[in-house]
Design a protein around this nucleic acid. Structure first.
Lengths: 301, 301
DNA sequence: ATAGACTATCCCGTAAATGGAACAAACAAA
DNA sequence: TTTGTTTGTTCCATTTACGGGATAGTCTAT
């Protein structure tokens, strides 16, 4: 009944509820208990003197007034997000939870050391790694950064930055090659068992090979398609066929004669590792710290 | 130490502090105790991890970071004010504190009845009248509306609306006129005692008289200058001289022969009553209600 | 130099917001 | 229709913020 000033935080709360079209999801987004969201929304409507949402437990509908009010609240929310981004970008001491997604292999074999020194160097950062191979929704799942290999999808809400370039090669174990003589031209792959890298949909990816001006492209024959480089490597060591590996991954095994480069004069197009981030006006300093650290580590490697 | 999200309300708090360059004044503006302002500012700086203001108890200076942060906070504060204005403009039932400044005479003699019916008609509005004759600072003192007579100063932060037009006349008591024969031309005012209306600075205001195409202007002679129409009227009734009154104010006394119009053929420029309000995107519905009510009452009078 | 007037901060009893859990309503699937 | 799941609300012990008053520090004026 009394004329209380409307809290800016409640405006943001309402904007989140309207955006998510759900109290629980809004509660998640704002990381507060749903009870608080419900109660605060109630109080807001009370001070406003009219309902913002018509709620059944299953569906939320905006009131005409809620619609108009939302327009304004969205503006406020946008500004506030900008400020929060700005503040994070100004953190002298990078801190907070840093959510990063990257391929499991890349974490284990390329960045493991860099990650270890990173958490050492920034004691106030809590690093949260998602190593699942699925293509995460950066914004929806509130990731700060993702590392992705190869071609990127076009997405105007994201920005990418080149991190690293990995050269690929074909490898097989000496045992396998003793039984199946190494091919001297890609066409001869037809007589071999290829371990093929699988795409999202499970389809095998084509191999593109180049030697001087000669190019060869095709899906090599084989009965195994899988989406883990590490497992491919293990299978190669066990003599399961010919497969594609990043050159540095194979280096050690080559040195110890456990793997042999096949078609060494042929080159794959290299694969680029990208750092992908949500597009923001200000890059949070924790994210910048991570990027700088990783880039530095890769440069030294 | 932990990574808390910055509250939008705290941003507004900080914007107010910076604007007022004082914690106490900010506390007044936001109508909250100064202890709260101090504590909240402290917490804000804590979560930000750096100081916003360098404070001696006598002077506040913005940090470099505070300067940048302020830019953003101001934006937020502006948006929030817009929303709050919007909400007030949408109030179906006008309510809240309505601060109005007007001349004491105008309240008592012209609007008294209208004010009575207004508070009757809007039970949720709390009317706060400032009848002091000083020129109030509408925005600084947070007035919703002021009624001002005559010429207005140019001020782009205010909007004005014509309410009423009062005609003026010269009056004197029969007793006075028995001793000092009524002038038949303004030039003859030189032989009379004039009760002069005083301006802000205490200087007597000039009289401008018009009769057909003949104009007369001058500060009439006299030894009394005062800035209350009511007191002028009382002095006139007591035979103190010739003075200027709004015609409707004198009407009753004229009818009862206690006052006589002097130089009845001569006209003063009429005085306009203006409603002056702070310029806003949305007019609060309580203010609109007051305006409508008063205008209606004046139209019927 | 000294008194006076402000100003920001601190203290602490009180009041209000919080959040985990239980609950009821609304829909989907069987 | 019934069962199961999801969503918004309510309850209440606990925590947190509030705000009136007291304190110490800083500048102005005499």
């Amino acid at each position: 009944m009394e004329q209380t000033n409307i809290s800016a935080d409640d405006m943001i709360l309402f904007a989140a509820i309207a955006e998510q079209a759900s109290l629980v999801r809004a509660a998640e987004q704002l990381s507060m208990p749903k009870a608080t969201v419900s109660r605060r929304l109630g109080h807001l409507e009370e001070t406003l003197g009219q309902k913002l949402l018509i709620r059944t437990t299953r569906r939320l509908t905006l009131t005409e007034f809620g619609e108009a009010f939302l327009d304004h609240c969205r503006r406020v929310a946008e500004e506030v997000v900008t400020v929060q981004d700005f503040v994070r970008s100004q953190d002298v001491q990078p801190r907070g939870r840093l959510r990063v997604s990257m391929p499991e292999d890349y974490a284990r074999r390329t960045l493991s050391r860099a990650l270890a020194t990173f958490i050492e160097a920034y004691p106030e950062i809590e690093l949260e790694l998602d190593l699942s191979s699925r293509l995460v929704d950066l914004i929806g799942e509130r990731f700060d950064l993702a590392i992705r290999m190869g071609e990127l999808a076009n997405d105007s809400t994201l920005v990418a930055r080149k991190l690293d370039e990995q050269h690929l090669g074909l490898y097989a174990s000496p045992i396998y090659l003793a039984l199946h003589p190494a091919p001297r031209h890609p066409d001869e792959l037809a007589h071999h068992a290829a371990l093929r890298m699988g795409a999202e949909n499970g389809q095998a990816l084509a191999w593109q090979l180049q030697h001087g001006k000669e190019e060869w492209q095709g899906i090599p024959p084989g009965r195994m398609t899988l989406n883990s480089i590490s497992v491919i490597q293990q299978l190669l060591l066990d003599g399961a066929g010919i497969g594609m590996l990043p050159v540095p991954f194979a280096e050690e095994d080559v040195k110890k004669k456990r793997l042999v480069r096949v078609l060494p004069d042929w080159r794959f197009p290299s694969v680029t590792a990208w750092a992908v981030m949500p597009m923001r006006r200000f890059l949070p300093s924790k994210t910048r710290a991570f990027l700088d650290h990783v880039e530095n580590a890769l440069r030294l490697a």
